[in-house]
Amino acid sequence: NITNLCPFDEVFNATRFASVYAWNRKRISNCVADYSVLYNFAPFFAFKCYGVSPTKLNDLCFTNVYADSFVIRGNEVSQIAPGQTGNIADYNYKLPDDFTGCVIAWNSNKLDSKVGGNYNYLYRLFRKSNLKPFERDISTEIYQAGNKPCNGVAGFNCYFPLRSYGFRPTYGVGHQPYRVVVLSFELLHAPATVCGPKKST
């Protein structure tokens, strides 16, 4: 009989979020998941679920829940969905086509923008091939755009693969920082350890 609540607040209220190319993952297990707390949290810009209804989450049990978190621009949030393409979905964070879970995003301009620009948040701009679902690539190898080998030196046709967002408070909404948490639900042939409040007695 599990009684402790799942530590969703640790994920959602973290002081610093990860850059999207180096997205953070927390495994959540052996706890009671009260999703209504999240669902009623006012400032969400997006709360979209795939393969599961957000209002039914509290009735369900899962083997594991993974909480992935990172920061992207407002106009990139739409790429955090199954079957998407674009710089983020291709080179930074890719969801599987059969994704079961929820994508939760909110504007973090007050936290993550600075006058003069916040350059701490990076994304991958160049990559030889697209990421596989949930693949994480933190390499900083110089990207070779031409035929000539770069030998690890940036220059003509040789690019550092990461780019900084440089968030400023005055940017338009599409270019403002958004914090994103992706909850993915794993249902294995194993005992369920993460259940909603109704199922955990």
Rank of each mutant, 00 (worst) to 15 (best):
N1T: 09
N1W: 04
N1F: 05
I2S: 14
T3A: 07
N4M: 08
L5A: 13
L5M: 10
F8P: 03
D9C: 05
E10R: 07
E10A: 10
E10Y: 05
V11C: 03
N13V: 00
R16L: 08
R16P: 04
A18S: 11
A18E: 09
S19Q: 05
Y21V: 06
Y21T: 05
A22F: 06
A22Q: 11
R27S: 08
A33P: 10
D34S: 05
Y35E: 06
V37T: 14
Y39F: 15
N40W: 06
F41V: 09
F41I: 09
A42T: 07
P43F: 06
F44Q: 11
F45T: 14
A46R: 14
K48G: 03
K48W: 03
G51S: 04
S53A: 11
T55V: 09
N58F: 05
D59C: 05
D59E: 15
L60V: 10
N64R: 10
Y66F: 11
Y66S: 07
A67K: 01
A67M: 13
F70S: 03
V71N: 01
R73N: 11
G74L: 02
G74M: 06
G74Y: 04
A81Y: 01
G83F: 09
T85L: 05
G86A: 04
I88G: 03
A89C: 04
A89G: 04
Y91P: 03
N92C: 02
P96K: 04
D98V: 06
F99D: 00
I104R: 00
S108R: 01
N109T: 10
K110R: 11
L111A: 13
D112L: 00
D112Q: 00
S113H: 04
V115N: 14
V115E: 15
G116I: 08
G117Q: 09
N118R: 07
Y119M: 14
L122I: 11
Y123P: 02
F126W: 15
S129K: 13
S129V: 11
P133W: 02
P133L: 01
F134M: 08
D137N: 06
D137P: 03
I142T: 10
I142R: 07
Y143H: 13
Y143E: 13
Q144E: 13
A145R: 11
K148E: 15
K148N: 12
K148W: 10
K148V: 13
C150Q: 06
G152Q: 12
A154Y: 09
G155P: 09
G155T: 10
F156C: 11
N157Q: 12
C158G: 06
C158E: 07
F160C: 11
L162A: 03
L162Q: 03
R163K: 14
S164Y: 08
S164L: 05
Y165P: 05
G166F: 07
F167A: 05
F167L: 04
R168A: 13
P169Q: 09
P169T: 09
P169A: 08
Y171G: 13
Q176F: 01
Q176A: 06
Q176I: 01
Q176N: 05
R179K: 02
V180R: 00
V181C: 04
L183W: 00
S184I: 08
E186F: 00
H189T: 12
A190N: 12
A192N: 12
A192K: 12
T193K: 13
T193N: 13
T193L: 10
V194Y: 10
P197T: 14
K198N: 15
K199M: 13
S200N: 12
T201Q: 14
T201W: 13
